[in-house]
Computed example of a mutant assay.
Amino acid sequence: MLRLPEAYRSLFKRPFGTLYGSVGELLPQLEGRPVYAVGDVVTHNLLTAGVVPDITIIDGHTMRTPCNRSPLLLMRWVTVKNPPGTITTDLEDAIEEVVGDPPAVIFVEGEEDLAVIPLVLAAPDGAAVLYGQPEEGVVLRLVDATAKQAAASMLKVFVRE
């Protein structure tokens, strides 16, 4: 398991991609791409806009409060445990599995906030990864070599336990 030390948490509060005020603003950039969503609200907003993500990673919460907008998607569900502030091997393995065989939902018992990092690393070039930026909007990260390098650099501050 990888744990994010408290001293580095502020680094992960900045958007890891382009910040938009709403999902509606970025819809044109999703056309023709695999769409991967991290978060219950982002997934709900994509579905409301008529976009069904190829992969969804949710935990049934938004900002650590139970989310009444958790989607009921009719696709394969994989459940993993992932405590707050960590990236478990189970989460990484589940991401690899569903990226190789979409569509799927990964339901996280714990917290899915840091799943964006291994998801960008596993995603094919050209994929669109979206996640919520609390109180600000939605972040879109288009996957390419630069995105993968940035994600790999982010992992370097984690401690393996």
Rank of each mutant, 00 (worst) to 15 (best):
P15L: 08
S70K: 09
S70G: 12
S22D: 14
L47I: 15
R33P: 04
A49K: 07
T43V: 07
C67Y: 04
D90S: 14
Q29H: 13
T88K: 03
E96S: 14
N68Y: 10
V41I: 15
L74W: 10
T48W: 08
V52R: 10
D90N: 06
Y36V: 07
L74R: 13
H61Y: 15
V80Y: 02
A37T: 03
D90Y: 04
R64A: 14
R76V: 07
L73H: 01
G50A: 07
T48I: 13
T43H: 03
G24T: 05
G21V: 05
V35C: 08
M63Y: 10
P84W: 06
G39P: 00
E92L: 12
R33W: 09
P15M: 05
R76L: 06
A94N: 05
G50R: 09
E31A: 15
E96K: 15
R33G: 10
P66N: 09
R69K: 13
L30R: 02
G24W: 01
T89L: 11
A49F: 05
D54Q: 08
T43C: 07
Y36Q: 07
P53I: 02
T65R: 15
L72S: 14
T79L: 10
V78C: 05
I58N: 00
C67R: 05
G85M: 06
P84Q: 09
T88N: 05
P84T: 10
R33K: 14
H44D: 12
L73V: 13
V51N: 00
L46A: 01
V78W: 05
W77L: 11
T56A: 14
V23T: 07
L47D: 05
H61M: 11
A37R: 00
L19R: 04
I57E: 02
A37V: 06
Q29G: 09
G32C: 07
G39A: 11
S22W: 12
R76P: 06
P66Y: 07
G85A: 08
N68R: 12
G39D: 06
G32K: 05
V51M: 06
D54G: 11
L27T: 03
R69V: 15
M75L: 11
T18H: 10
L47R: 10
D93N: 14
T89E: 14
L46T: 01
Q29I: 07
L27Q: 04
P28M: 14
V42M: 04
V41D: 03
T79G: 08
Q29E: 15
